[in-house]
Design a protein around this nucleic acid. Sequence first.
DNA 1: AAATCGGGGGT
DNA 2: ACCCCAGATTT
Length: 361
Amino acid sequence: MKKEERVPYILENFNRQAFQNQLIEWFMKEQRILPWRENQDPYRVWVSEIMLQQTRVDTVIPYFNNFLEKFPTPEALAEADEQAVLKAWEGLGYYSRARNLQNAVREVVEKYEGQIPDNKAKLSELKGVGPYTKGAILSIAYDQPEPAVDGNVMRVLSRILLVEDDIAKASTKKLFEFLIHDLISYEDPSSFNQGLMELGAIICTPKSPSCLLCPVQSECRAFQEGRESELPIKTSKKKQKNQPYMALLIENDQGEVLIEQRPSNGLLASLWQYPMVPMSDIQKKDIPSWFYSEFGLEIELGNTVDQIRHVFSHLIWNMEVKKAQIQTGHLEKSNTKFVAKEDILSYPFPVSHQKVHKHLK
DNA sequence: AAATCGGGGGT
DNA sequence: ACCCCAGATTT
C-alpha cells in the first residue's frame, strides 16, 4: 500500500482537534525562551534551522547569537568572507552547512533582493534547504501549514499514533509528512510544528519519556498500551572505522608554524589543520621522504607530544602528534603556509586539531 | 537505499 | 559503549 493510502487508516478514531488544542496550548505556555523565537524574521528562522540540523538547542544558542551579531542580515552574510563564516561555525560541525547557507543567501540577495522566498519551489532550490528546513521556514516564518519532520517529530508521532515503521528508512519520513498534512492546525501551523518538536525535546524523550507530564497523554496510543518504550522502531547503524594519522608540529626559524588547508569538498572542507600523514598508506620510516615529495621540505622527526583519538559519525581518527625540525628545502605546496603562533586562532580549525594548539607553547 | 558529513551530551 | 540530536547531499 502506498504511504498516502495508509493515512486514513492510521488516523481512524484519532481525535485530531483535541490533539491540536492540547499540543498548541501546552506549547504556548511551556515553550522555552530561545533567541530565534524573539520574532518571525525569516532570516533568523533560516539560520537557526540550519544550525539546529543534527545539533542540540543548547549547543546552538551561543553560535546563533554570535552569528547574528557578525552577520545580522542576508546582505551582511552574502558579502562576508567564507573563511570568516567558517570561523563563526568552528566547532559546530557539518561545515558544508555553513558554505551552503552562504551560497544560498547570496542567491537570495541577487535574485530576490534579500527577501527569503515564501513558497516551496523557490525554497527547495536553495543549497542546504531540504524537506525539513523548507517546512520549518514556511510554517514558522510564514505561518503556512507545511510539515517539518525531524527526528523529534518521528519519535513523538510514532508513539502517539503507534506507527511501527523503521524511522531509519527514508520512506518513513514521507509517511509522517503525509500524516501531518492531515493533522496540522491551519489556525497555528507554527505552534503546531514547534510544539511537536518541543514535546520531543522536553517530554517525549528517546529514553524514559515523561508521559505523566505529557499534555497529549490522553491521545497517545503507545501510552495507552504501555508501549512507549518500544517506540520508535529504528535499525542501528554500523560502527566507525579507525584511521591512523601522524600530525606534525613544524616550526621554522622565525617561530612560525606550518598549517595546511583541507580540500574544499568532503570531510572538514576548507578548514585548516596541522600537516597530517596518513599512516595507513605510509610506513613510519618513510615519513620524511613522503613529506619531502608532498611539501618540498626535508624534516627530521622529533618527540611524540600527544595521542589524540577523535570520533566522527562514520570514522575515528587516531592521531599521533609529533614535533619535527626542518633541515632544508622551501615550501612548495599551494594549500600550506607558515603562520605566526599568535595568528593561528584566526583560522578555522576542526576540534581534533584545536587540541594540538596547546603544544605550541 | 546507503554512505557521507561533526561534535557533544545523556545513559 | 551506544544512542541521539529542529537533516541534506552525494553515491
